[in-house]
Computed example of a mutant assay.
Amino acid sequence: MKTTTISAGLLAATLLAGPTGAADLRYGAPYQQPPPYAAVPTWTGPYVGVNLGYQFGSSALSMNPSGIVGGVQGGYNYQIGQFVIGAETDFQFSGAEDTFAAYKFSNPWFGTLRGRAGFAMNNVLLYGTAGFAYGRGEVEWFGWSQTKTHTGWTAGAGIEVAFTQNWSARAEYLYVDLEKQNYTMLGLNAGIESSIVRFGLNYRF
């Protein structure tokens, strides 16, 4: 009788412990998941970078000065919620040039000073930009040449993707309108309107 009582007690203890053990296995601490992608905590801060692209231009006398363009940029962003505002300046060296009859027009360099406003989705930033533009125009004719500094405006849009806490890449379109100047030596009024597609790499501090 004593042996039967002990056996029954052991059986009852086993039955009571069974659900508890199963519960421990089922509802215990979950499997440790790997950490998610290290998202950009904020776009706020200064940055510098480089860019490379192509300039499609048009000017006087049906000339279309076009060529490879590249340069540097720098700026500052400030994020409020998902909205990002900031300012950026850049300076570009350009191989844009074209000829018509004896005339040659080129745009060896230009720069911009722009405001930016965008919408951030974690590590992706969509933005628009607009502001002031300036640049050099050069006209050549039968060995004579004259240069002028043009001013104007620019506007565009782009997308920037952060792939680490500090580095980001972007693709951008800019329209740059440098107003006409009178090249008196050659009797020619010329400016340049350009569409620029470029890709850039930024380091954010």
Rank of each mutant, 00 (worst) to 15 (best):
G81K: 06
R116D: 04
T42E: 00
N123V: 02
A17L: 08
F119V: 14
V50D: 02
S58C: 02
A120L: 13
T14H: 09
L11D: 02
I196L: 14
Y175Q: 12
W43T: 01
A120G: 07
N202R: 02
A169P: 02
S62F: 07
E193F: 08
A17S: 06
F163Q: 09
A87I: 10
I192D: 13
S106V: 10
S7L: 03
E160Q: 12
G49I: 14
V40I: 12
N166F: 01
I192Q: 13
V139G: 08
L113C: 09
W43L: 03
S94N: 13
G21W: 00
G131H: 11
I6R: 14
N64K: 15
E140A: 13
P36Q: 01
R26W: 02
A22H: 06
P34G: 05
I192V: 15
P41N: 08
L52C: 12
G57V: 00
I159W: 03
L174W: 06
Y103F: 15
L178M: 12
T154I: 01
G128Y: 02
G86I: 05
F163T: 06
Q33E: 12
T151V: 06
Q55S: 13
F93R: 15
P34A: 03
V161Y: 03
R204A: 07
Y78T: 11
Y183F: 15
L61Y: 04
S145L: 07
I159N: 02
P41Q: 03
T44D: 00
F91A: 11
T112E: 05
T89G: 14
F205L: 11
T184M: 06
E88D: 12
Q55I: 04
N202M: 09
T151K: 08
R198T: 04
R116P: 03
R114S: 10
W144K: 13
T164C: 00
A169H: 01
S58K: 12
L16F: 00
L178E: 04
Y183T: 10
L174I: 02
T89I: 14
F56C: 03
Q146H: 08
V50M: 10
A155P: 00
A120K: 09
R170D: 08
G49T: 07
E88T: 11
L113T: 14
D24M: 09
F199K: 15
N182F: 10
R114Q: 14
M185R: 14
Q82E: 05
V124N: 08
W43N: 01
I6G: 04
N77F: 07
E172I: 14
F83C: 10
V139M: 14
R116V: 10
Y27E: 06
V161N: 00
T151N: 09
T44V: 02
I68H: 03
A162P: 12
G74S: 08
Q165N: 05
G137E: 03
W153K: 10
G128H: 02
T129M: 08
G75W: 02
